[in-house]
Computed example of a mutant assay.
Amino acid sequence: MQPRACWAGLTAGLRVVLILYCWCCLGLSFSPTEPLTRLSAPQNLRIHLYNLEQVLRWDPVPISNLTGPVLYSVEYKFLKNNWSTMTCVNCTRIAESICNFTAAHDSSCFPHYFNISLRVKAQLGELDSDWALAPWFQHFRNATLGPPLDVVVTSLDGSLIINFKPPFKVEPDKFDYIVHYWQKEGEKKVKGPFPSQSIELNDLKIPSEYCLQVQAKLNPSHLNDPLFGQLSNTSCLEISFAASAKFQQVMITILGIFVLIFLVLGCYILAQKSQGLIKSYFHSPPGIPPQIKEFLMEPNDPILEALDNNSSAAEDCCVSLSIVSCQEDNQDDLSNNLSDNT
C-alpha cells in the first residue's frame, strides 16, 4: 500500500507543476507588447571607391510592425575634426540606403589626400538608432584605379602604335602607362612607364601576332607609393611583311616625287642663268642667201644678159636696177673668201 500512495502523490505533484507552467506560458503570450524605444543601427556599411567614384552603402534597417519610411542621415569627419553634416551632397534624411558623394571630390568637402570617416543612423518619426561607423579611408590610397579607355592598336612598318585615353582627368597629379605585351603563345614582356598616351613598340618579330594590355599608374603628389590600375582588355594584332613593304613603297614614291621636283627646279634655274649661252649654241650665225652667194661665185651668169634684154620693155613701168661691179681683183678676193667659207 505504501508504494502506491507514494506513486499517487508524485503524479499529483507533477500535474500541479504542469498546470502552473501552462498558466505562465498563456500569461506571457497574452501580455501586452512593450513599446519600441529605439531602432536598430544600420549594418554592413561598405564604401565603393573606383576612379573618382565615392559611394557609401548599407543594409536597410528592419522596422517589424512599424509603419512609415525609415530615413537615414550621414555625417563625416576628418582625422582630428568633429562630426559634420554633409553640405556638398544631400545625404541627410534620405530614404535610400545609399549615399553617393562622388561630386564632393570637386569641392573642399573630401580632398583626396585627407583621411575621412563616415557614420550613418536611421530615423523613423521620433525614433532613431545609434550611429553606425564606417572604416576611415583615403581616396587615392584605397581606391581601385580602372584601366585606360579607348585603346586603339595599329600596325605600322613592323611596329605597334598604341593610342588611348586616361582613366579620368586628375590635376595636379599625373598618370604614367605600362604596356604588357607578348607574342601569341609566348612569354609576356613589360615596357614602361611612359608619360605619353601614344606608345610605339619596336623590335618585334615579323611576321607574327602580338597581344597587349595597357595599365595606368597614378603618382599622387602626397603619397610615396604610386597607385597601379587595372589592365585594359586584351588587344591582338598581326604584323606582316605586306604592311612593311607597303610602307616602304609609299615612302619611295614620296621620295621620288620630291627628287623630281628638285630636278625640275634646278633645270629651270640653270636655264635662266645660261639663257645667252643656250641661244648661241642652238642658233647658227647669219649667212648670205644661196642665190646671191651663187651669183658672187659666178658673176658672168647669163641671167644678167637676160635682165639687160628685158630692161627696155620694162622701162615704162619698172624702175631700173643698176649693179655696180667691183674690180677684178676685189671680185677674185671675194670669190676666194666665199670658197673658203663653204
Rank of each mutant, 00 (worst) to 15 (best):
S240Y: 00
E315R: 04
N336K: 15
S97G: 11
F228E: 14
L10W: 03
V179N: 04
I98N: 10
S274Y: 10
V70A: 10
A103I: 06
L263P: 11
Q249A: 09
P3A: 07
P69D: 06
K273V: 11
L304N: 08
R46L: 04
N336L: 14
I257C: 07
R119H: 02
V264S: 09
D316I: 04
A134L: 05
L71N: 11
G266T: 11
P286R: 04
A8E: 12
Q331T: 12
D225W: 07
S312I: 01
V250D: 07
N81W: 13
F228I: 13
L218I: 10
E209C: 08
I288T: 08
Q138C: 04
L334S: 09
E53R: 05
F30G: 15
F247S: 04
A12S: 14
V259A: 04
K279V: 10
T144S: 07
Y181G: 04
A95N: 12
P285F: 04
P147H: 03
N337A: 15
V152A: 03
G13C: 15
D176F: 09
R57P: 05
V70H: 05
C317K: 06
P290S: 12
D173W: 01
E315F: 01
H48P: 08
A103F: 01
R57F: 00
P62K: 10
P193S: 07
S107C: 07
A245Q: 01
P166L: 02
I161E: 05
G256A: 01
V120S: 06
P299K: 05
L18R: 13
C267P: 13
L223F: 09
F282R: 09
Y181F: 00
N51M: 05
K189L: 00
D59W: 01
N163G: 08
D176E: 13
L338I: 06
V324L: 02
L277T: 12
P166G: 02
S311P: 06
M297F: 10
I254M: 00
W136V: 09
I323C: 02
P111S: 10
H112G: 15
S108F: 04
F78A: 14
P299W: 06
P172N: 05
P60T: 09
N219P: 08
S221Q: 14
L334F: 08
L118S: 12
I178G: 01
N202P: 03
R46T: 05
N219A: 10
L28Y: 05
N341T: 14
Q327Y: 11
T11V: 15
